[in-house]
């Protein structure tokens, strides 16, 4: 049971970004403008700390190492009842996310976790 999954299109983009740049991480943003979008960085570019939660280490075919998916602890408290899927759409999202120059933007799609899934995750 995973908290976070990726769509095939997002997996393609992750593979391509990994090939071009190196190992990757995500940090889920909040707030205005491009808030609530997942930000994709080189692994370690964004320094996580005790105020963050590692939601998932994503396994993507063709990517040797797991891609970590982080969120601030306070935001996770408000999101923890939902399952997240990283998708990708055409766009120009700002922020420093690696995919923006490709004319695409990672996007989160959400669904409610079932009671069984929540129990399994705890």
């Amino acid at each position: 049971m995973a908290r976070v999954d990726v769509t095939p299109a997002a997996a393609d983009l992750i593979r391509s970004l990994r090939g071009a740049h190196g190992p990757l991480m995500f940090h889920q943003s909040g707030g205005c403008c491009d808030g609530s979008s997942p930000m994709c960085y080189l692994e370690g570019e964004f320094r996580t700390g005790s105020s963050d939660v590692l939601l998932e280490s994503l396994r993507v075919d063709g990517v040797a190492e797991p891609v970590t998916f982080w969120m601030s602890k306070s935001q996770f408290e408000l999101w923890k009842h939902t399952h997240l899927t990283v998708d990708v759409v055409p766009g120009r999202g700002s922020g420093f996310s690696l995919e923006a120059p490709e004319g695409v933007r990672f996007l989160i799609r959400s669904r409610l976790l079932t009671a069984e899934e929540l129990a399994a995750l705890q």
Binding site: C33, D34, G35, S94
Partner: peptide
């Protein structure tokens, strides 16, 4: 900077 929290934190870093 005006924007969202993750980039805000990154800029602070």
């Amino acid at each position: 900077f005006t924007g969202e929290t993750t980039t805000g934190r990154l800029i602070m870093q």
